[in-house]
């Protein structure tokens, strides 16, 4: 039975029973700050915005290690890992994070995003190590939301 049939007979059975797969599980997002960086304004605003956009958001706080983030993402079967860094230490810290992601064979399974003070010149190198999206300071919340939705629906 297709969608059209169901719309001809509006309420033959509850739609959830007909299409159990269409009950969407909210997108699970794990956010964290790595290293010692204390600039957390941006990531908290993003956490609120993604939550208001219907996503299930966990903000792990600051001074989290790459291992802790990936553990949590694996445990909660997260769709997205979002890291914020305004300390300039994004290259070594994101390299370490990606190493853990690879060890757990999560590359391609979880969308990896980075926000913060990232010079334009570093972007390419970050994309090369497998960061899916880089959002420098000043990025629009709507753009970040749209990027996540688009990339996750591509993957399905």
């Amino acid at each position: 039975m297709g969608v059209t049939d169901a719309s001809i007979h509006p309420y033959p059975v509850h739609p959830c029973e007909l299409f159990p797969m269409t009950t969407p599980k909210p997108t699970k997002v794990i956010l964290a700050k790595l290293g010692l960086d204390g600039h957390d304004r941006g990531i908290k605003v993003i956490a609120k915005a993604l939550e208001k956009a219907g996503m299930d958001v966990v903000y792990m706080g600051m001074r989290v290690t790459p291992e802790q983030v990936v553990d949590r993402a694996q445990r909660e079967d997260a769709d997205v890992i979002g890291i914020s860094l305004l300390s300039g230490a994004h290259k070594p810290l994101m390299t370490r994070l990606m190493k853990v992601v690879d060890e757990r064979e999560m590359r391609g399974e979880t969308l990896i995003l980075l926000g913060g003070t990232v010079p334009d010149g570093d972007r390419e190198a970050l994309e090369e190590i497998g960061i899916d999206g880089v959002f420098p300071v000043g990025s629009s919340l709507r753009d970040i939301e749209a990027f996540i939705k688009e990339r996750l629906s591509d993957g399905e």
């Binding site: 290293g35 010692l36 300390s87 300039g88 070594p92 810290l93």
Partner: peptide
């Protein structure tokens, strides 16, 4: 924990 942040900012 200091890796990459020594003398950085």
């Amino acid at each position: 924990l200091s890796e990459g942040e020594v003398g950085r900012l």
